[in-house]
Design a protein around this nucleic acid. Structure first.
Lengths: 246, 246
DNA sequence: CGATTTTTTGATTGGTATCAAACATGGTGG
DNA sequence: CCACCATGTTTGATACCAATCAAAAAATCG
């Protein structure tokens, strides 16, 4: 069952041996059901930094769960401008946008050497019919993506530059922490320009705002190495923005 | 089976008699499956203008399909600011955000007297297990919502005021047209402030931009009555925004 | 190590927000 | 049915935040 994609290495893979099992499929399954689930996953696939997992317009066949590494997704507007719509780390799903019309509507790019599990959608549908808890879980995953997008819309529509950056850093910190990494000391996998695109800001504004946070003693910036010195202040900026208003 | 909710009237309802059937459940079903689907829909419910269909924080039990009327959804930030995340017309679904954690994450408000079909989620799950085509269709609906949100993010992150307004008017026009209404002559159901919130602009900017479009002869504005005089120009503004850039 | 890309910082511009006031509207109650 | 009041809309003047333009400095990659 082992095939070789262009630049990607593919290896066989079992869910119960995956340490991220609990992240992407946190449903309690009987042995028989677990067999069924394993038949869903075709294989895992390794991508080098900069490699595309899929591109907008490509026909959709599979959902991908990030095993290790880091991805971004980009939507392209017809006039050449594009927008980073999300960053994805282990246990998070890529490709849900492709279900509705059998074509991917965004690009997914590895921001570092990464590994994903491929879940052919047709197998997921079958598993969903056979195992109701998987169907429900999948509904929940898609719903979570919708809620996540609503939060981003709230940010893009209402927040000023400092608030956006604070929200971005806090969110990243929480997700890393949830995965067992240090919450207040991490390496950014994306460029200032990619952060800016995601936050609806220009790269210069991102750079300036990070510098400002550093001057105020909130964070420490060394290129892509970020330390949150006073994370609680960042939280405050995100939560109680009335100060800036009133 | 007729109950009375506070201010809402509830009536029995059958999918095959609903003229919007094709919009919200465009799947070809056998008679037996149709019976199953009808058992999913509990009833339809009427809401007066301004009435809430559900509120953020309320426990989630059902998805709602708009039968007639017009809704908005709002997410509230912890500091009191809020953001309109969508406008919904007949055949469109409300409440998908509630699946992921059994609580609604936004408010849904009727912008005119409206009628919805209530689809208890537990029945939808059962129907999805029994009828694979319904499961698939539901995945597609949720995926479409994700794609729609991505488009809004692109708009909020990249477009200037005029482009946002043009995109808004074109989108509204297309959706009305798809439902058999006039594409270039319609009544706005929402206020300038609600449009502004949705587009990430202040109400004054919305008003000014509409006035500007009118001065340029692109549209005709009479309060909430909008006519698209040169819809193709609005399309151009949305598509080829390079002019403004280059 | 050199070439290219990314990042930082400064100066200036510009678009939208903000503040303010007049005007229109629509719903309510007399 | 009309007057009235609360709400929504338009338009103007000004302020401010982030974009843009520009250039130097640092980092990454081959």
């Amino acid at each position: 069952m082992i095939k070789i994609h262009k630049q990607s290495e593919i290896v066989q893979n079992l869910c119960e041996k995956c340490s991220f099992h609990v992240l992407c499929m946190p449903v309690i399954l009987k042995d028989k059901e677990l067999d069924e689930l394993n038949s869903v996953i075709r294989h895992s696939r390794r991508l080098k930094k900069g490699e595309y997992l899929f591109r907008a317009g490509e026909s959709f066949r599979s959902i991908f769960a990030v095993r290790t590494g880091f991805f971004k997704t980009i939507v392209n507007s017809q006039d050449g401008r594009d927008q980073v719509t999300g960053f994805f780390m282990s246990g998070e799903l890529l490709g849900l946008d492709g279900i509705c019309n059998n074509h991917h509507s965004c690009d997914a790019v590895a921001l570092e050497d990464s590994e994903v599990c491929e879940l052919p959608f047709i197998h997921l549908e079958q598993a969903g019919t056979l195992i109701p808890s998987i169907q429900t879980h999948f509904y929940k995953l898609m719903s979570r993506e919708i809620v996540r997008n609503q939060e981003i819309m709230l940010m893009l529509g209402n927040m000023r530059a400092e608030e956006r950056l604070a929200a971005f850093l806090v969110n990243l910190s929480q997700r890393l922490n949830y995965r067992g990494f240090a919450a207040n000391d991490f390496i950014l996998r994306m460029s200032r320009e990619e952060i800016g695109s995601y936050l609806g800001l220009k790269l210069e504004t991102v750079s300036r705002t990070l510098s400002k946070f550093q001057q105020e003693g909130l964070i420490k910036v060394e290129h892509k190495h970020i330390q949150l010195v006073q994370p609680w202040v960042l939280h405050e900026i995100v939560l109680s923005c009335q100060k800036a208003i009133g």
